[in-house]
Amino acid sequence: MESTEVVRRYWSSVWSRDWHAVGQTLAEDVEVFWPVTREIIRGRDNMVAVNSEQPNGWSIDVLSIHDAGDVVVSEVQVPQEDVGIFRVVSFWTVADDVITSGREYWTMYGGEEGRDWRRKYATVGDPPS
């Protein structure tokens, strides 16, 4: 199976809350790092638990998935009721049809103001679809 398909299956399984299927996309000793919070999630069971115990009211929109040679890069949007919209850029390593490691950058969409000095160079808005 292509590495991009493994990542698609992962996101699809998370979205459908099929925790058994999520586990099947992850290596037993998977390690995922979240640099923004400096959290490291080690092991399939912990990664499934992090996803399954997230309070409900969220969905997942896969924006893009790209094969980047040794890694697969995905960008997803995660709207969550009463919280806002998260954007997640993930770098996944896939081997033997499972995700073996990842680095995920979770951020609140529009959650920070641009710097004052850049205002003369940039506008605030959403990119065209």
Rank of each mutant, 00 (worst) to 15 (best):
N51A: 08
R103N: 09
G84V: 15
T25I: 03
D116R: 06
S12L: 11
A122R: 07
E75S: 04
Y10M: 06
V62C: 08
I41Q: 01
I41A: 03
W15T: 13
G111S: 07
A27G: 09
E112W: 10
S74W: 02
D116K: 08
D116M: 12
D18Y: 07
E112Q: 10
F33G: 03
V76N: 00
G57T: 00
D70I: 07
F91C: 02
D18M: 09
G23L: 11
L26Y: 05
Y10F: 12
P128N: 03
Y10L: 08
W19L: 00
S64C: 05
G23V: 06
D45Q: 06
W34K: 12
A68H: 08
S3V: 00
D29K: 07
R17F: 03
D70E: 03
H20C: 11
V124T: 09
V30C: 13
V30L: 11
A21V: 03
V71L: 12
V83A: 11
E28K: 14
V72P: 01
L26A: 06
Y121R: 10
T37N: 12
D97H: 05
V94A: 01
K120H: 12
E28Q: 15
W106F: 15
V48Q: 03
D61F: 11
G114T: 12
T4C: 04
E81T: 10
G111Y: 14
P55H: 09
H66V: 08
V50H: 05
P55M: 07
D126W: 15
Y105V: 09
T25C: 14
E104S: 06
A122T: 15
T123P: 00
G84E: 08
D116T: 13
E2I: 13
T100S: 09
E28F: 10
V30F: 09
E5S: 12
I40R: 13
E113H: 15
F91Y: 10
I65T: 05
G125M: 14
V76Q: 00
D29Y: 02
D18P: 02
